[in-house]
Design a protein around this nucleic acid. Sequence first.
DNA 1: AACATCTGCACAATCGATGCAGCAAGTAGA
DNA 2: TCTACTTGCTGCATCGATTGTGCAGATGTT
Lengths: 349, 349
Amino acid sequence: MTRATRKSTIYDIARLSGASPSTVSAALGENWRKRRIAEATVETIRRIATEQGYSTNMQARGLRKARSGLVGMVIPLHDNRFFSSMSQSFEALARDRGQVPVIASSMRDPTEERRIVETLISYAVDYLFIAGATDPEAVTAMCRAADLRHVFVDLPGRGAPSVVSDNYKGAYDLTQRLLADRTISGQTPRDRIYFIGGDDTDYASACRIAAFRDVLANAGQPVLPEQIIACGYAPRSATREIAALCDRLGSLPSGMFVNSLTAFEGVLGHLSSLPLEAFRSSVIGCYDYDPFAAYLQFPVHMVRQDAHGLIREAYRMIEEDPYDLVLTMVEPEQIAPRTYYDSPFSDRG
Amino acid sequence: MTRATRKSTIYDIARLSGASPSTVSAALGENWRKRRIAEATVETIRRIATEQGYSTNMQARGLRKARSGLVGMVIPLHDNRFFSSMSQSFEALARDRGQVPVIASSMRDPTEERRIVETLISYAVDYLFIAGATDPEAVTAMCRAADLRHVFVDLPGRGAPSVVSDNYKGAYDLTQRLLADRTISGQTPRDRIYFIGGDDTDYASACRIAAFRDVLANAGQPVLPEQIIACGYAPRSATREIAALCDRLGSLPSGMFVNSLTAFEGVLGHLSSLPLEAFRSSVIGCYDYDPFAAYLQFPVHMVRQDAHGLIREAYRMIEEDPYDLVLTMVEPEQIAPRTYYDSPFSDRG
DNA sequence: AACATCTGCACAATCGATGCAGCAAGTAGA
DNA sequence: TCTACTTGCTGCATCGATTGTGCAGATGTT
């Protein structure tokens, strides 16, 4: 209710303490020893600053020092398990370093991405992390012009260090597990394993598709074009595609490699109309992990990407000297099904 | 690879265009008409600025105008469906207004929360949104001192407008649905409905517990203390509590009101060791929504909070004049089970 | 022709923090 | 006593954009 008074500045503290603004600045900072300020003076100034509720005006400091203390990160979406885990890790690591994280989402739109990068540059962020870049070249060009250190995460760029999930390995292992499961269950595969969801022009999906192809080719089951249904990330389109597929096949396919949680959500939207028996002869895997998806009434093989590891590596890269254009891989983790048919809820782990 | 040149400023543009810095500033801004800059001059200046890749130094502008163009939001966690939806909405609305959102997570720690607010104030954010505040009074005090407009979201504060989910109504309806389901299934409730998860000192949980009590009391089943198991948000502790409960009862309770997704995840951790039959005589509800949790092999009643609606209202409040200390409620949505026992995957909706 | 008005722009102060250069007073060494 | 340092602090310019004020020159008015 009390009318707010203007925020106090070093000039106010200077007046109150009888010292000069530059002394106040030094006393409140780290380097008062080098500036030969007496310890007693420092203490007085700090006491007064606390009493006055002083806090540094970061805009002024940033202007003067040409560094803001902000670190930027661009992610495709906030509303996504994988990316929001990255946000959480990023925030923790940034705070450890006394930096302030600014996280923006691009909605996978190159135009929006460029606008965001430009904005972050305007605010003089000290570093920039770009996850799932849609146009790495453009980002690098802008960062170069602004002399800004940046790292690509999850999707590599050629102009800066990159840290990515080992999508090939994750998908390779997942596909092998699907094949093995199909074999163990002693069935004659009545048809092929399908790859569903994602966008085959996006880097991660392309790696996974390559691994999927390789495993099946090695197993003597070369992949036909129709087995790759890269229908995007929207649940709705996955529902449509899986329905159409089941229609064509007359049943569930004998195996599904679902490329994202959102696609899996869409797949479930169709699967929910089928009797449980229909799943007995189908093996299902999903790239990405969700704790609830692990408890469905049929087994689901999942892959959990190491969001924290990615960000940790990315920070290492960006702080390293020299700042090399290397590509670092971080391994994802395979998660065995939590449930199985006959004792639907019995833990195998 | 080209060595980065210093970012260009209005002084560079001024030199190149033969105009003065103030003319350049006006020409690049909105108010060149008021400042009577000739249209031709504006065009020349803008052309040169584009050629030079000029972008405003927001630190300098912020320093001069005492506004940064940043808007802050504090959330407990990034890694959470509800809060990350809020982030997504917040970002969209902020961008619509040409502002830059800065989202920070407090980990539900009052000390961290204060530190974050202080930091955001240092960066001169124009508005502050605080979701799930742990110490609203302290936040208000700091914002008052800095003359900063703020809004509380999801958890109300007395010193600023607040927008909250109607937790009472959401929990009231959910509890009623649980009761009704138990009645429909024609069973004699062998025991009581339990409330599991959350923290009874936190505002949302308290509202929900109150509704839970009221519904049961109205139904002639007054709630005993042991029915409220507010064991926090960690999956692990929910697992432990539900296991202990089942042990005491000798079976699953006849009904469970699970207060958060993380608690539900923990509950599932125990439930996964039970045969499906055990669920037939138990009704289960979860406050908060997850698409995969909706497809488990037993019916789950869920509540979906309107994250977007909350943020939309919060923005309305903060931009409104006068800036009133009102409390706005936003209704959550009840989500019917997607699955049912006998045709485990058949849609009832 | 004398005066008023308008147009288009430049000047200079300002926002708050920082850091270099320098100055007065004190201490030490010769 | 005089130079040579050291200590503790102040003054001033600076970062880049904004904005109130002012000033020529052009145009209009009587």
